[in-house]
Amino acid sequence: MTHTHTLAVQDLTLGYGDRTVIDGLDLVLPAGRITAIVGANACGKSTLLRSMSRLLVPRSGQVLLDGKQVHRMPAKELARTLGLLPQSPIAPEGITVADLVGRGRNPHQRMFSRWSAEDDEAVAAALDATDTASLADRSVDELSGGQRQRVWIAMALAQQTDLLLLDEPTTFLDVSHQVEVLDLLTDLNRSRGTTIVMVLHDLNLAARYADHLIALADGRVHAVGDPHEVLTEDTVQAVFGLSSRVLLDPTSGRPMMLPIGRHNVSVPA
């Protein structure tokens, strides 16, 4: 899995009914890197990701994978290259972990083909990578939030795509599980060169883990590039309407944002 694929968006307009959510967006997602997308609630991050995996047909413009329009590609062919973990995936009642992770093999299987040893190996590798092998026969319903999120990521890994889009993979997790998931995705990126694109809410973790940061506001790109250039006090003000201080994190050297609310503001002595 060392193929590098470029995913790009050209003049993309998306919406629901007569509401426009994304308006004339241009983006290039760097191959083999980790990209984080940040933005206020309801600014269209999920909508953008859904369109990139062809769930939503663009009003105008296009999504290009290696120069080919994703909306014209055969569904399974696209799904062997590009994976998406949605914001709130649904687990069927009573399904076991191994079975759910096995669903990730769908794009590699034909309509009536039998399950192959290769499929078992891929599922096993995904379970091992996410440290969920000991849960294989457990029912997904019984897992904790952190375990469940790792299982969903395992399902996306079993898909064995070179590009992986994740919509808020750390939401609902406590801070140590958030870091665990992001470390796992970083391992995947480092060891296999998988291109990772994820929506994150925590700006500090986004700046810490991403090579490339995209800040969306009002359906457009407000700022894009290296986290040092994107995570600034001005961007936070423009994108979230929040005044803040941005400092350098002494451990990682990455920028770090401290929000300033209306209270608890002490005047420097």
């Binding site: 769930l55 569904a75 590009l82 998406l84 649904i90 069927p92 299987q109 009536f112």
Partner: peptide
Amino acid sequence: LGQSRNLSMSQLGDDTASALGVRV
């Protein structure tokens, strides 16, 4: 029966099924 696998995939929700190559 030919749609059996797609039907099982649809239990994961439209977004996931579509991302896994089902023409929902």
